[in-house]
Amino acid sequence: MDISFDAIPLAHYLLLSATLFVIGVMGVLMRRNAIVVFMSIEIMLNAVNISLISFDRYLNQHDGQIFSFMVMCVAAAEVSVGLAIIIALFRNKPTVNLDEFNIMKS
């Protein structure tokens, strides 16, 4: 069975992807809470996944889905290591404000 109800152009999905990516960038640049910055990075990774999966659907391939699977693996690894770093930093200095962490400077 083919899916044949009137479909929408790819540009809609790409615009959604770009919007979410920009929101993620905005969060990284504006927020100073390390955990919220991490969540913004997650938003950006998800925005890229939308693009990958949309191109897959419109080109009838599966490569993009495999790639978004890999993106999820990397996101899981990144979050586990990143949150461990936040906990280690929090032990050192009881805050998660990124402006307070300049221990590498001096």
Partner: peptide, 9 residues
Amino acid sequence: FDSPAHVLE
């Protein structure tokens, strides 16, 4: 890219 490719079920 106006409409999706015809894909199998």
